[in-house]
């Protein structure tokens, strides 16, 4: 464990807790894409298949349980909670899951480190995580208004993966044979997808004005 990875995990944890607290407190999911949240639940499910078979550390297991619990709770709130669900904008949140799930699955079958079920599922979760934010970014551009909690949520999500890239660079230099080029490529693609959002986020923060994404 290095400081970049710990900072990345904490940023990631903070992003999902910010979102969960927002939905729980104001009982609204305005501006939140259910599609993205469902994709994240799928990412964590396919990535943590080994949660009960391979014990890495208490930290690792606890964090996996928190990510699984929070992502499914958020999906439950938006789908089932009698008050929250009313603020879900299903007419705008129309991104089709399978446009992302199918290509990631096909890619994972052909490009992976080892052709076993768990390894293909793990690789699929990496590819899917890289693109899972797209429905959320599309929704933000459509609704054009971004309340600052949603803006912070997306920013923290992008920041966590950027910190992970620093972690991979650090591990590349400090640990022999630490080679996970699939992880690195997926991580860089994911962070680049946030890049334009980062640009507008910083612009709005610098000019102290409301965050507006171009149509």
């Amino acid at each position: 464990m290095n400081i970049f990875r710990l900072a990345g995990d904490m940023t990631h944890l903070f992003s999902v807790l910010v979102l969960l607290l927002k939905i729980h407190t104001i009982k609204s999911c305005a501006g939140i894409s259910l599609k993205t949240q469902e994709l994240y639940a799928l990412v964590f499910t396919t990535r943590y298949l080994d949660i009960f078979t391979d014990f890495i550390s208490l930290y690792n297991t606890v964090m996996k349980l928190i990510f699984l619990g929070s992502s499914f709770s958020i999906v439950w709130y938006i789908r089932r909670h009698k008050i929250v669900r009313r603020s879900y904008d299903k007419d705008q949140d129309t991104f089709r899951h399978y446009f992302l799930v199918i290509p990631c699955l096909v890619l994972a079958v052909f490009i992976n480190h080892k052709f076993t079920f768990k390894e293909v599922m793990w690789t699929f979760s990496l590819y899917l995580e890289a693109v899972a934010i797209l429905p959320q970014l599309v929704l933000l551009q459509r609704t054009r208004n971004i309340d600052n909690l949603t803006g912070q949520y997306v920013f923290l999500l992008g920041a966590y993966r950027a910190l992970y890239i620093l972690n991979w660079i650090y591990r590349h230099f400090t640990e022999p044979h630490y080679v996970h080029w699939i992880t690195w490529i997926a991580g860089v693609v994911q962070t680049l997808l946030y890049a334009d959002f980062f640009y507008y986020y910083f612009q709005s923060w610098k000019n102290n004005e409301k965050l507006q994404l171009p149509a």
Partner: peptide
């Protein structure tokens, strides 16, 4: 198999 596919990251 070359690199370990043991995934210790979240």
């Amino acid at each position: 198999d070359g690199q370990s596919t043991e995934h210790d990251e979240l």
